[in-house]
Design a protein around this nucleic acid. Structure first.
Length: 278
DNA sequence: CGATCTACCTGATGGC
DNA sequence: TGCCATCAGGTAGATC
């Protein structure tokens, strides 16, 4: 589910809601969410720790603890982090409950159980989570020059959508934002990375940054199934600003001539305008 | 190395 | 109403 804008929205709320709080107890249900370490090791490392800061890299959330450890969270397709009071009824598929000494609970709810959480020390981070060390640059957190972006494009011979979604090149883009970015840039998903003019490279990079900032401004995207909600259970609003995603057969906002097309690319639905994207 | 598929899961939806 | 197939925001690992 969540891509960079949704994870960033949650990160900002956690910064306000969780930083400074001390963990009293940790409950883990089932075996899927905490799977890289035992539930006991997970809970022991969290017990009594205070959250000092919340970082994000791509779609990963990193909650730093005063013990020096870091709580790593990836929501994958259907994970939600929810703030709640201890007396609030537990939703179905609640896998982890963190209770603070003051200020309620943080809950991890995840129907499809692809998401995960674990605690480790910073020096073991790259060893235990190699994919984290492999992540490319974060386009919101660490902007690069368009020339650097251009070099990355030239260095990877592949189709544009595959390039945008490759977490080892750019961290944080998924299926929705890849399509929205390509529409904003006026480029087709199946263009080859090394076929872009200088102007197209600049336009693509600007679209990456602007689309993501815009989506964060509106609190991310929530689709019809309401799987993405923020810490307080509220949906985002950026779906109202989607130009192509989930708009098959609807008229293109830009050219007003073509209807949005839907294709399959790398097993994923891909939405685009045949006229505006070349 | 890249491209493509499959698996991990539950739940919503649409066709019959 | 039920049954079945398909699809869903992500990613790792196998295979070719």
């Amino acid at each position: 589910m969540p891509e960079l804008p949704e994870v960033e929205t949650i990160r900002r709320e956690l910064e306000r809601e969780a930083v400074g709080k001390k963990i009293k107890t940790v409950e883990v249900h089932g075996t899927r969410t905490v799977r890289r370490q035992t539930k006991k090791a997970f809970a022991t490392k969290l017990d009594g720790a205070k959250i000092t800061s919340v970082d994000r890299k791509g779609k990963y959330l990193l909650m730093r603890l005063d013990s020096g450890d870091v709580l790593v969270i990836h929501l994958r397709m259907s994970g939600q982090l929810l703030r709640a009071a201890a007396k609030d009824p537990l939703p179905k598929h609640t896998h982890v409950v963190i209770t603070f000494t003051v200020g309620g609970q943080l809950r991890f709810v995840d129907p499809r159980t692809f998401g995960e959480m674990f605690v480790t020390s910073p020096d073991q981070l790259t060893e235990e989570v190699p994919e984290l060390a492999e992540l490319g640059f974060d386009p919101v957190d660490e902007a690069v020059s368009w020339q650097t972006f251009g070099h990355l494009l030239m260095a990877h011979k592949m189709k544009l959508k595959a390039f945008l979604m490759d977490q080892t090149i750019i961290a944080g883009l998924g299926n929705i934002y890849a399509d929205e970015i390509l529409f904003a840039a006026g480029l087709r998903y199946d263009r080859q990375t090394d076929s872009l003019s200088t102007q197209e490279m600049r336009r693509l990079y600007r679209s990456v940054v602007e689309t993501l900032h815009d989506a964060i401004k509106y609190g991310g995207s929530t689709l019809a199934d309401e799987q993405y909600v923020d810490l307080n259970g509220k949906p985002g609003e950026y779906q109202e600003h989607h130009k192509v995603y989930d708009r098959e057969k609807l008229p293109c906002f830009r050219c007003r001539r073509a209807n949005i097309s839907k294709a399959k690319f790398a097993g994923r639905s891909t939405y685009f305008c045949e006229v505006c994207q070349v």
